[in-house]
Design a protein around this nucleic acid. Structure first.
Length: 456
RNA sequence: GCACCCGUAGCUCAGCUGGAUAGAGCGUUGCCCUCCGGAGGCAAAGGCCACAGGUUCGACUCCUGUCGGGUGCGCCA
């Protein structure tokens, strides 16, 4: 995320999908290093610093104003647009910040810490396994940027063009059909995100020793990554066998078919979105459980609400745009989180009712009914699905699998009595199938970063 | 102009490295509760897989072209 602003709906996909793939790779036993490449060093920080300065001069406490970063950012942007003096001050402060001015760094750090805590709060609510230790933002590569420039220069890759230092790659052309540059250093001496991405690649290979780097970033940055990856190869920042893979994803659209916006026309804040999902889930859960106590109700609503938002995203093909709709994601029907969570609670309740531990069933499974065979076949495909998710970074394959599994279990459950089976052998066999289903559902959802419920 | 993504049922979407009559969900129309949670299950209707060529024993899938939609393309990230 861009630390200058609040987390919004656009950050959902990268964090949630990246997290699911990460969990899946770890489940396979691979060593995964998370890297949260936050935007904390860009030009927009000059604007924020200038605004913080102004507030401070008026003896206004900054931290209070930072409770809503979006409002703060807009206020700073407003000053930037209305005052030429302010704008110049902002541009000056970026340069100061990037050249190590202590006062700028202090202000910057104050802002950054609050912004990071907002991010972490969102991750926690979402159940995303990113910690503060996983943050390695653009600022972390500050000292490496000059090294990148000199490395590229030594390799003879650098050319000067219109005052900027660039790398020209034959395979990329601009609108006029002329070679398209990757700008490494601006004419004013500043660095761009291509430079810090190169520094990051260098770090990931030489220090982290990665053999596969996955980038969960918006599809619109596709060209940028193509270019940066190629420059990294030419600069020999990565071993030939190391892969750099952009895992692009599409835009989140509103029900009007345009990029998702609030009624007011701004980009919805992630926190607000999650709160609304929880509220809507609360209404639904309460309707089904009139006598449940408030605390349990709130807990279930929270799990269902968050799971619904995540699952709606995870279940769609990563590469295409998808339409955001509270109504369809919170529906208890179809390929949704509530349907899967419900399927899980049904299995769990069989064991609760019978007072049997799932793991205590040691008998082997005997398959006679068609529904039993279908279910067993599906259970055995789990490993294959995991491989596909890990290889392609496409969690929606796992979602589809879990949905099919839940559906087959429901059919089986309808057709094959478990606790009141005809014989003890049959009962044990069916209990075993149910236990395996529960275990697979729970494991699968956990790889998607979704918690299960014993009742809902 | 070039590049990337997309075009599959009324709607929202699957379809993995080409393999048999193209699958779900929503919506529509019917069924199924003296039986383990009906937030379920069963079934019907609904598709020239944008279009045209090509490769192949075989194409929604691969290649080429056309049309339509989205996105990106020099100092933001």
């Amino acid at each position: 995320p861009n630390l200058a602003k609040e987390m919004h709906v656009g950050h959902l996909r990268s964090t949630i999908i990246g997290d699911a793939v990460t969990r899946t790779l770890e489940f396979q036993g691979q060593n995964v290093i998370r890297q949260n490449h936050v935007g904390d060093w860009g030009t927009q920080f000059g604007m924020l610093l200038a605004y913080m300065e102004e507030l401070r001069a008026q003896n206004i406490e900054i931290s209070k104003n930072l409770s809503d970063l979006e409002v703060f950012y807009r206020a700073a942007k407003g000053r930037f647009d209305e005052s030429e003096d302010f704008a110049n001050r902002a541009r000056f402060l970026v340069v100061e910040l990037q050249s190590g001015n202590e006062e700028c760094l202090t202000l910057w750090k104050e802002f950054k810490d609050i912004s990071i805590s907002h991010c972490q709060e969102a991750y926690q609510r979402l159940g995303v396994s990113l910690s503060i230790e996983d943050i390695r933002g653009e600022s972390a590569y500050d000292k490496d940027l000059a090294v990148v420039v000199s490395d590229l220069d030594k390799k003879g890759l650098l050319q000067e063009s219109q005052g900027a230092k660039c790398v020209f790659l034959d395979s990329f052309k601009n609108k006029e059909g002329e070679p398209l540059p990757v700008i490494i250093k601006k004419k004013d001496g500043g660095f761009l995100y291509a430079t810090s991405d190169l520094a990051a690649i260098r770090y990931r290979q030489s220090v982290l020793n990665a053999d596969r780097a996955l980038y969960f970033v918006d599809a619109r940055q596709g060209l940028h990554f193509q270019q940066v990856f190629e420059v990294a190869r030419l600069a020999e920042y990565i071993k030939p066998e190391t892969t750099l893979e952009h895992m692009p994803f599409g835009t989140v659209m509103g029900e009007d078919g345009k990029p998702f916006k609030t009624r007011a026309g701004s980009t919805p804040k992630l926190a607000d979105l999650l709160t609304e999902a929880e509220e809507r889930a609360y209404v639904l859960v309460k309707d089904k459980n009139k006598d449940m106590d408030e605390e349990t109700l709130r807990h279930i609503a929270s799990v269902v609400g968050i799971a619904s938002v995540k699952y709606a995203d995870l279940s769609k093909n990563r590469t295409s745009d998808y339409t955001f709709s509270f109504d369809s994601m919170l529906s208890f029907e179809g390929n949704t989180a509530p349907y899967l969570l419900y399927a899980y609670t049904r299995v769990a309740s069989i064991f609760n009712k019978a007072e049997i531990e799932m793991d205590s069933i040691t008998t082997s499974v005997s398959l006679t009914d068609e529904k039993e065979i279908d279910l067993a076949n599906k259970l055995m495909q789990f490993n294959e699905v995991i491989k596909s998710v890990a290889k392609q970074g496409m969690p929606h394959h796992l979602c589809a699998y879990l949905f099919e599994l839940a559906g087959l279990f429901s059919s089986f459950y309808e057709a094959c009595p478990i606790l009141i089976a005809e014989s003890e052998i049959q009962k044990q066999s069916r209990l075993k199938l149910a236990a395996l289903t529960a275990k697979t559902l729970k494991q699968g959802l956990s790889l998607l970063g979704i918690n299960t419920l014993e009742r809902m």
